[in-house]
Design a binder for these strands. Structure first.
Length: 281
DNA sequence: ATTAGACCCTGATCGC
DNA sequence: TGCGATCAGGGTCTAA
């Protein structure tokens, strides 16, 4: 489901229900998601206070006052839904229990935060906060798109060594953390680059131009509350609306917004790439 | 080290 | 209405 903008949207949606609040009780309904859940997860969460909610790449990190952080990945179909709270005029509820509600956090004050994930490609783990950078899921991640370590020089150097298509290279989380299939397609369209082009053979100036484009696309998507395809929801159940701004993703045969040429869909690395054969070279 | 492909799992959709 | 094939925003692991 979620790429960086969706994860950031979910994180923001969880702040009010979780930050500064104690987890009164944690309900863990199965022993594993993608991987086994950590030993004693329910006991280690119960009674802990959430001090801060952060995001690294497509992971959400909930720092606890126990010295541990809860690491959450939503995979393809994971959701975090808040219920049992009133936000302004709206009372959020989530008729429980739903199929695939794997972990439920009962927060002090009555809010519930439910991790629901039909496909179970998602993950949860506990890590000592002061050693989180060494966690096996986080250690190999590339720079954050909005961080200082991600810049023109870095990207040009990193892509120079890549013979794979630019599409696949930008999806590699070791090279750059946070992009997924949707936003890579949209970025390459805005940059006018054919997704099949070998990364190493694209002129440095065109690679450099990707840096601000990547930030622009991600910023706009975050601003829109992410993209809601199929059943993705923000934490408050609202839908993001960036999908209405897609220029190529999921628009096979529809006219290119720039030139009218039908958008093409091809498979790369087992995923669909959408592009305009006229505008992207 | 890089790259392609299989694989993980459930659910929605489409053509017949 | 049913059935199989295909596809889906994630990532890991293996083999070459």
């Amino acid at each position: 489901m979620p790429e960086l903008p969706e994860v950031e949207t979910v994180r923001r949606g969880l702040v009010q229900a979780m930050e500064g609040r104690r987890i009164e009780r944690a309900e863990v309904n199965r022993p594993d998601l993608r991987w086994p859940l950590p030993e004693g997860l329910a006991e280690r969460l119960g009674g802990a206070r959430v001090t801060l909610l952060r995001r690294r790449s497509k992971y959400i990190l909930a720092d606890l006052d126990t010295g541990e952080s809860l690491l959450i990945h939503l995979g393809m179909s994971g959701r975090m839904l808040v219920s049992g709270v009133t936000l302004g005029r709206f009372h959020l509820d989530h008729p429980v229990p739903q199929k695939h509600d794997h972990v439920v956090l009962h927060m002090e004050g009555g809010a519930r935060v439910t991790f629901n994930d039909a496909r179970r490609f998602g993950a949860m783990d506990l890590v000592r906060t002061d050693r989180e950078a060494a966690h096996w899921l986080l250690a190999g991640l590339g720079p954050e798109p909005f961080g200082n370590a991600f810049n023109e020089g870095y990207l040009v150097a990193a892509l120079k060594a890549r013979k794979s298509p630019i599409k696949t290279a930008l999806l590699d989380q070791h090279l750059l953390a946070g992009l997924g299939n949707i936003y890579v397609c949209e970025v390459l369209f805005r940059a006018g680059i054919d997704p099949r082009r070998a990364a190493s053979r694209i002129a440095a100036a065109r690679i450099a131009a990707l840096v601000p484009i990547i930030r622009e696309v991600l910023s706009e998507a975050i601003e829109a509350g992410g993209s809601s395809l199929r059943d993705h929801r923000q934490a408050d159940g609202e839908l993001g609306y960036f999908q209405h701004a897609f220029r190529v993703y999921d628009r096979e045969d529809a006219p290119c917004p720039a030139c009218g040429t039908p958008i093409r869909r091809i498979a790369q690395g087992g995923r669909s790439s959408y592009f305009c054969p006229q505008c992207q070279r």
